[in-house]
Simulated scan of single mutants.
Amino acid sequence: MAALENRPFVKMNGLGNEIVVLDLRDGPLAVPPAEARALARRDVLPFDQIMALYPPESEGTSAFVRIINCDGSESQACGNGTRCIALYEAGRTGADHMAFESVAGRLDCTVAPEGITVDMGMPRFGWHDIPLAGPVADTRAIELQAGPAEAPVLRGPAVANVGNPHAIFWVDDIDAVDLARFGPELEHHPVFPERANISAAQILSPDHIRLKVWERGVGLTQACGSAACATAVSAARLGLTGRRVTVSLPGGDLVIDWRESDDHILMTGPAEFEFDGRLTADMLTAPADRPANAGAA
């Protein structure tokens, strides 16, 4: 029997970032990587992340959240997924303010008609915090490139940690960058011992950025909230933008405000319910792993 068989799920999205919410607070179970990968198949329940809710560990929080990517690996942060669980919790309890815990820290959320705001905490810029494989003098631009050595397509990214490691390459024309080609190589580059989210960013104005993201453990994605945050603060550090910007991703826009009073990042954007259901054994088991008499997916 699959570990998660018969557990209820809610399918949601944040700017097209496909999210599955599993509320496991009444019966905490680990999410087996093999079951996550089976569930993520295109003909089953494709998702970018599972947001698994567990009993809270600190007073004043609604749940401890673990974030599982579609390849079965675990992520430390997912801004779009956090907006989804905030909307889920608001629907369940009627509250418009709530907080979640994660391995990356506390996530305070506000649900309002104009959007859902998540306090993503303070960004980290030290090379050991990102982490990088070794010390660098300035994380606003590190020595890294992709493409031909004599004419690199991407070079000199800013790096930051906003729950996850991020590398942001500044480009003149985002549409000219084949991130599906360079993303896998850069995600697994030896400079990133824990892999990294890879972004291509185009500055449109001091308060507007276009962004495409290759997400660690996921691939090309319609939106990545933590990447939008990392890009916004990195642009501000370089003087390319102010501290409040709109970040336009393929799935839509996020407003990022790097609050000057305490350096916390506030991310505001939408989330949507799609449908709900219960997980079945066939959904959670890849065909090669099933007994001979098991039904097809």
Rank of each mutant, 00 (worst) to 15 (best):
A2E: 09
A2Y: 02
A2G: 08
A3Y: 07
P8E: 11
F9W: 09
F9K: 06
N13I: 06
N13H: 15
G16P: 03
N17F: 05
V20G: 00
L22A: 04
D23N: 07
L24E: 05
D26M: 09
A30G: 09
P32R: 05
A34Q: 14
E35I: 08
A36Y: 02
L39K: 02
Q49L: 10
I50F: 03
M51I: 13
P56M: 09
S58F: 13
G60F: 06
F64G: 05
V65M: 15
R66Q: 14
I67W: 00
I68N: 01
I68F: 04
C70S: 15
D71Y: 04
A77C: 13
C84Q: 04
I85N: 02
A86H: 04
L87P: 00
E89C: 10
E89H: 13
R92M: 15
G94S: 12
A95Y: 05
A95H: 11
H97F: 12
A99L: 07
F100A: 02
V103L: 14
R106S: 12
L107Q: 02
T110M: 10
V111A: 05
P113A: 06
G115K: 02
T117L: 05
V118R: 00
M120N: 03
P123Q: 03
D129L: 13
I130C: 04
V136P: 00
T139W: 01
T139E: 06
A141C: 15
I142T: 07
I142M: 05
Q145K: 11
G147N: 08
A151S: 15
P152F: 04
V153T: 14
L154N: 03
R155W: 12
G156P: 08
G163F: 01
F169A: 07
V171N: 01
I174S: 09
A176E: 14
D178G: 08
R181Q: 15
F182E: 10
F182H: 13
G183L: 02
G183Y: 00
L186G: 06
P190L: 11
P190N: 11
F192E: 02
E194R: 15
E194K: 14
R195T: 12
R195S: 11
I198N: 01
S199E: 14
A201R: 02
Q202E: 15
I203L: 09
D207H: 14
H208Y: 14
H208G: 11
R210V: 12
L211V: 10
W214P: 00
E215L: 08
L220T: 13
L220F: 10
Q222G: 13
A223R: 01
V233I: 07
S234G: 06
A236M: 08
R237F: 04
L238H: 06
L240P: 02
T246H: 07
V247M: 03
G252T: 09
G252S: 07
G252Y: 01
L254M: 07
L254K: 02
L254G: 01
I256M: 07
S261C: 10
S261A: 15
H264Q: 08
I265K: 01
I265W: 00
I265L: 13
M267L: 11
A271W: 00
E274R: 14
G277P: 02
L279H: 03
D282K: 04
M283N: 05
L284P: 00
L284N: 02
P287D: 08
R290E: 08
A292P: 06
A292R: 11
N293M: 14
A296H: 12
A297G: 13
